[in-house]
């Protein structure tokens, strides 16, 4: 009897501890969000989006150049990664049993585990050293490499979820494999793939380490891809480490913009996935 009581007490205690673990993890989340929103909102204004950085000591100014820079560098990364990732994902799912497909899966997972700073060192070696200058292109290469495994694996996973009957129907009607894949299978999985790409973009746009010595930084506004380019994340890094309260406030504002972007993408993705699930259940 006593032993049973003890077992019950232990069981309840563990259940309690597990619930406590959830709360414990939510505390830092709440704290980070609270400080980013409260500190960020008080320093965020219209000028942050439209004005250029001011020299030290001069109040005001914004991160217009860095915001545009982030969009450009992330866009470059997407342009590089999306076609390659899509095609490789299609290969991995179409020829799923083949040795190359297994190798691609392995390579993508490996690439996904490579620390972002190491990706930065690699991009520096192939896109900065040969041209002897930091450039937006080098930053795009670094972010593209970060995105590549995400796009590849998402594409593959979602193509595998498409019911085989769809593909078989297309093939039975005499479609070639390429035709069946591009007009039937991929469109069926497209909403999911786009959601995955959206999440990959959000993740990569928040990266700092691969940009430190590829896109580097720039005090001025530029859209020249061969020039060093300021990005939101790198700018936040320098401002947060500075000793000037004005710059530190701007770092908080930048952090808020980043969090808002990530949050928006996550919520959008969540809605899209929920809709797809409803559709699948209904079908």
């Amino acid at each position: 009897m006593k032993r049973d009581l003890l077992r019950k007490i232990v069981s309840h205690a563990i259940v309690f501890l597990c619930a406590a673990a959830v709360l414990l993890a939510l505390i830092p989340l709440a704290l980070v969000l609270f400080y980013v929103v409260s500190q960020g909102l008080s320093s965020l204004n219209w000028a942050f989006f439209t004005h250029m950085p001011t020299p030290v000591g001069e109040p005001g100014g914004g991160m217009a150049n860095a915001i545009v820079g982030s969009l450009i560098v992330t866009g470059l990364g997407a342009v590089l990664a999306i076609p390659i990732g899509l095609m490789a994902g299609i290969y991995a799912s179409e020829y799923r049993g083949s040795r190359l497909a297994a190798a691609v899966r392995f390579a993508a997972d490996t690439l996904n585990g490579v620390p972002s700073i190491v990706v930065g060192v690699f991009a520096f070696g192939i896109a900065v050293v040969p041209f002897q200058r930091f450039s937006a292109i080098a930053g795009g290469v670094a972010l593209g490499i970060m995105m590549l495994p995400l796009v590849t694996r998402t594409t593959e996973e979602l193509l595998l979820l498409v019911p085989p009957s769809l593909r078989e129907g297309a093939l039975a009607l005499g479609a070639t494999r390429a035709r069946a894949v591009f007009t039937v299978v991929v469109p069926a999985a497209l909403p999911g793939i786009l959601t995955g790409i959206l999440l990959a973009l959000a993740r990569v746009a928040g990266e700092t380490a691969p940009l430190l010595f590829t896109a580097f930084n720039n005090r001025y506004f530029t859209t020249d891809l061969r020039q060093p380019m300021a990005t939101l994340t790198v700018q936040v890094y320098y401002y947060a480490n500075s000793a000037y309260p004005d710059w530190q406030r701007q770092a908080w504002a930048g952090a808020l913009v980043l969090v808002a972007m990530v949050l928006t993408c996550s919520v959008l993705a969540r809605f899209a996935t929920a809709r797809m699930e409803r559709m699948q259940r209904g079908a």
Partner: peptide, 22 residues
Amino acid sequence: VFLTELLAAIPSIVYGVWGIFV
């Protein structure tokens, strides 16, 4: 699940800013 994934989605630099000042 959504909340824990959010914890993973917050960029490293934001944790850094929070780390320095808070």
